[in-house]
């Protein structure tokens, strides 16, 4: 019998407390935390993300030395590299550098593996990388023109090195 009235009292008091918590949310003490992306934000969302965010990948062909470490480290083999030796220059020159972002899982292992400083392969904070077609997701960083530029740069570097050695 006592249990009966205790049940009623417990029900009323706990439900009232719960409803009190919900009511507090109508006061300014609890503001809504929604970010109204993409158009009603004070700054673009991309700029509010931390520096280390692992967004889309970006590649700088000018610092890359075509060591292929990134392609070997990627667990999913989404980086395809073609490289060739140029007559008269040391090392490799990139002929093709493709990253298939459709396969990429944004794990960051490739960026850690890049040995040059500053890094050739880096994550940006950009997250809006969706495209309309699957083919557009394959980022190709080296085309004919760039390849020729890189070959010329490598040859020039080799000449400078030879000139410095001849001087000694």
């Amino acid at each position: 019998m006592r249990r009966y009235f205790l049940n009623i009292w417990e029900a009323i008091s706990t439900i009232a407390k719960g409803m009190g918590v919900t009511l507090v949310h109508f006061t300014p003490a609890r503001k809504s935390i929604t970010i109204q992306y993409p158009d009603r934000t004070p700054v673009p969302v991309v700029e509010t993300l931390p520096e280390r965010s692992r967004g889309m990948l970006t590649f700088d062909p000018d610092v890359c030395d075509a060591c292929s470490m990134c392609a070997m480290t990627c667990p999913i083999d989404c980086i395809s590299i073609d490289r060739e030796r140029v007559e008269g220059a040391k090392g490799f020159v990139l002929k093709r550098f493709d990253i298939d972002m459709a396969k990429c899982m944004y794990c960051g292992l490739c960026t850690e593996a890049c040995p040059v400083k500053p890094k050739g392969l880096e994550h940006t904070r950009e997250f809006e990388g969706a495209t309309d077609r699957m083919e557009d997701l394959i980022l190709e960083f080296i085309d004919e023109k760039k390849h020729r530029e890189l070959v010329e740069k490598a040859l020039k570097k080799a000449e400078k090195l030879k000139a410095a050695q001849n001087e000694e």
């Binding site: 109508f26 809504s32 929604t34 109204q36």
Partner: peptide
């Protein structure tokens, strides 16, 4: 509902 859940409803 949105106000109680710290979010905005449809706006």
């Amino acid at each position: 509902a949105g106000k109680m859940q710290s979010r905005i409803g449809p706006n």
